[in-house]
Design a protein around this nucleic acid. Structure first.
Lengths: 226, 226, 226, 226
DNA sequence: GATGAATGAGTGTTCATTCAT
DNA sequence: TATGAATGAACACTCATTCAT
């Protein structure tokens, strides 16, 4: 429950917190945009959830559209640099590396509100071409590069089959995208979520990604499914 | 069954009668809902694209929301029964069967406007819980059953590894969902589409799905990537 | 009291009068713009005075600004052509001609709501540069040309002194402008209007325009003031 | 007395103290009110132009409306007493006196920012009846009395024709009003100002005011136009 | 005194929906 | 049945005014 961390209700009104405002507003906006979509989110609601008046919102963001853009920009924690480093000095097998990447992704993106941004972008892309291109450039491209590097490492070290990189990247990406979308759409509406365990899902996807569905006549029997 | 299924050109021309109206409206609505989302689609636009007046639209659909629901309902491919049959009597290997299923899906759903409603549902699910549940019941469940049956066949015939069905289904589903969404969101905005070949993508995903990324020490070298 | 001429209150609502609407709205808008200025005039008021809802106004004018422009344009009855003709074939003395011009102006502009437009333009010119230039081109220029032609006739026929045309025009114009402004500003607020008789004012101004203030030693005594 | 009347440069620099604040604010406000009208002038702009914060403005003026009233009140030239004296002891002909009055007016009002409040009052009169009446009482009435006295002198001394004072006053006033308004509205928007020379205009108007347009058969030929 | 962050009533504009024709 | 003029509730955004600092 991210939003305003319940500031000590000192004065009932007219608090003066210039530094904190944009963050609080962005926070509230992220929640609402993800939950209801762009159009169904009213600026009054955003302001109210951030604990300020509508006017205050427009003090920090010149329009609803700019607020949206700021939410997307803000939420794209450029963790790619960090990850890139981590992965560069990873020691184990590339299979482990892939599993590690998935886990890290899940912890810092997939399971957090940041995943909502992806749903947002995929839902609203058509209405915000400008920001969609920004997203493509700043998020998608770097992300795909990261994946590509992992795959290349696997191939170069003889661990992975030689696959067409351009499409193999999507094999890694698709389960992530799918999970984020599911979580924020169908998954949030249908009470099947009960049985759905994201971590088991991820583990399962990585297994499949690595081993495929086909039986390997010689290889040891796969571990029993979870 | 996305749009109007090419009505038999009975009358020579310009003879589209009231029977066709709802279909034309649903057709126009699907396009616009997919392209711009529910909220950003104006009923005037829908009516205009269908070649009727705004009033006429409300003659057939009592509200924009009902129009949306009808779009989803009507756009749903009732082909699962047919497919189920086809697959039941499929003769070849389950790997071929899987590939065949992907191809069929691509031809009748993925590459057609029908793929749009998936994007629509995933985007608008939160705002239309009722119709989302309907979609889940009518489309997602049957679809997953179909996939599950294929996988089971593979396992039972000793072709596929024993995997946790509940999650393996998603391994098959994710690349499809991913492709449909990509097409209708980022893919429609970013001119990278140039290099992206859906059929190569699908082929690649099936390969990976079957063989995984890891080299099989004993197996013959994989075919060179396309 | 120009506005809606009290249409027979047939149906209480939802009348359908597409042809008449723009005129009625323009009419109401003229009244209010003149009375209260651009900013202080609310579109709701305009709509209400025209007997329609706010939404209907925007059916005919895309914005308040366009409504304003339309009011100005509409009210500029291009009577200049007509006047030009009339004056061209005027037979009497140029002094009579001038008096006739003033009278005509008063009857068709000065005393009517059209005079409000002048007040509007002079008040709001700075906020609507575009329409100000339009006004200058379409109204002021032609009007000055008309005056200039009268003065030239007087000079050419030896009736008028040889004066600098460029400024003499203003001597004719200023009393008109002054009267229109006075009427719509101070005159509308201060109950001195009681004693102020526009026609006597005009008559007096024409006299002065023609004879000047100085006594003419030889000329017959001026007529006693009204 | 428009702006701050050049306070004695006591302190070396940047020493403008709170005493000066109201004047600076009125100064800024006058400029903006004249340029854009009451409603289109934002208090932030006024404050910014005066070099203070918005809050400070409200420290000196309880509301925008009071600011407006103060602008009008303070901008009013209390010079009528002074002028009255000057004119009372004027020695020359009344024609010269009139010319002198025009010149003085131009120098201290017409050509200065003070002329702006006339435009302001005429534009906003309807929205501020109270201050309009104040203006009428403090400015218009005294001004007209002054003019009337000049005219009476002319008549009494046999220099001027016997005219209806109530309207003759406007013959003197109209060219002034016209000039001030023109300057601040159309004149400020249309680049015709090039050819327009206020002093030639005034000279011309006075000539016409005195001699009229009609030829005087016996009198010496008028001076050639400028 | 001075500031400027915060407010919220008010306004222009949109758009799904209605209904007289 | 079809139309499209009319509606009005809803919403984004503005800006004079307040007040804690």
């Amino acid at each position: 429950m991210p939003a305003t961390p319940t500031p000590p209700p000192a004065s009932p009104k007219r608090e003066r917190r210039k530094e904190a405002r944009p963050g609080e507003l962005l926070d509230a906006a992220l929640d609402l945009f993800v939950e209801k979509g762009y159009a169904a989110t009213k600026v009054d609601e955003v302001a109210a959830r951030a604990g300020v008046s509508k006017g205050t919102l427009f003090l920090y963001f010149p329009s609803k559209e700019e607020l949206f853009k700021a939410v997307v920009r803000e939420s794209i924690v450029g963790r790619f640099g960090e990850w890139s480093q981590e992965l560069a000095q990873f020691q184990g097998s590339t299979a482990d590396m892939l599993r590690y990447a998935y886990t890290t992704w899940w912890e810092s993106i997939g399971s957090t509100r940041a995943s909502g941004i992806t749903k947002l972008m995929l839902s609203e892309a058509g209405n915000f071409p400008e920001i969609t291109q920004f997203y493509q450039r700043e998020v998608i491209e770097p992300g795909q590069q990261l994946i590509r590097r992992v795959l290349l490492r696997g191939v170069e070290r003889g661990e992975f089959r030689t696959v067409n990189m351009d499409y193999a990247v999507y094999a890694v990406l698709a389960p992530m995208i799918f999970l984020m979308l599911w979580k924020h759409s169908i998954g949030a509406c249908v009470p099947d979520a009960l049985a759905f365990d994201p971590e088991a899902y991820i583990s399962s996807q990585v297994d499949n990604l690595l081993h495929g569905l086909l039986v390997r006549p010689d290889s040891p029997p796969p571990p029993p499914p979870v």
